[in-house]
Computed example of a mutant assay.
Amino acid sequence: MKQYDLLKQMSVKERRIQLFFSQGLLFLIAIIMSFFLFDSFFDWMHLFKWDTKEIFIFGFLSAVIIVLIEIAIVYTMPKKWWDDGGINELIFKNQPIGFIFIFTLTVAICEELLFRGVVQTTFGYVFASILFAAVHIRYIKKPVLFSAVLALSFYIGWVYEHTANLIVPIVMHFFIDFLLGLVIRLNK
């Protein structure tokens, strides 16, 4: 059975529970891995730096540019090239903006803690970027969609390498997902 069919059978509440559960697993994996791969749990503190300029330029502005590029792709390429099978519509369409905000913030924090905070910090930029893209397995059969996720993953990884600040990729990831979630929700 396809992932879309499984999600479609769930109620909105069950779907939300499943979405947050999957993110909770990623968060738990990040915490457990950090105990084994970091010298101290407090090594996490060195990954976070409040730098307003970096957060705005690399986090927020990069996200806006990426969202504009993705919207251009959606409106210029055939749907079969970029459509994820309706899964993102199931997740975001007809949802309250508050849910979209909380869910995309949760995704950004959990995924970036794991993929940039633990995996990239420990195993490097290329491995983390490829693994991040591979986790989005439902995109593999859609070359345009998968290429976009792979390129985005490498860009987020580069931003983390460049800034050495985990707040920046979290902010970028959040705004990309939040803005695209709003586009799906508001698109008639």
Results as ranks from 00 to 15, higher is better:
144 V>L: 13
76 T>A: 09
182 L>T: 13
148 A>M: 15
188 K>C: 08
115 F>C: 06
27 F>I: 08
113 L>V: 07
90 L>K: 15
115 F>A: 02
103 F>D: 00
70 E>R: 12
116 R>M: 11
146 F>R: 02
128 A>V: 06
177 D>C: 11
126 V>E: 01
14 E>C: 07
104 T>P: 07
176 I>F: 06
186 L>W: 15
168 V>N: 00
94 N>D: 13
127 F>C: 02
46 H>S: 11
158 W>Q: 00
30 A>N: 01
93 K>R: 15
28 L>D: 02
186 L>V: 13
35 F>N: 15
73 I>K: 07
56 F>E: 00
160 Y>A: 08
51 D>L: 03
154 F>W: 03
2 K>H: 10
137 I>A: 09
128 A>Q: 05
63 A>I: 01
74 V>I: 08
116 R>H: 09
119 V>Y: 10
49 K>L: 06
163 T>D: 00
67 V>K: 08
101 F>C: 02
150 L>Y: 13
52 T>V: 11
154 F>Y: 04
96 P>C: 02
39 D>M: 13
155 Y>G: 11
151 A>P: 07
131 L>M: 12
111 E>C: 07
31 I>D: 00
36 F>K: 13
148 A>R: 15
175 F>T: 02
76 T>L: 14
175 F>A: 06
48 F>N: 01
56 F>Q: 01
35 F>H: 15
112 E>H: 12
61 L>P: 14
132 F>E: 00
153 S>N: 04
32 I>R: 06
128 A>C: 09
23 Q>V: 09
2 K>A: 08
32 I>A: 14
137 I>H: 06
81 W>T: 10
153 S>I: 07
159 V>I: 14
187 N>S: 10
85 G>D: 01
40 S>L: 12
146 F>W: 04
177 D>P: 11
164 A>D: 07
93 K>T: 10
4 Y>D: 01
172 M>L: 14
36 F>N: 12
150 L>P: 04
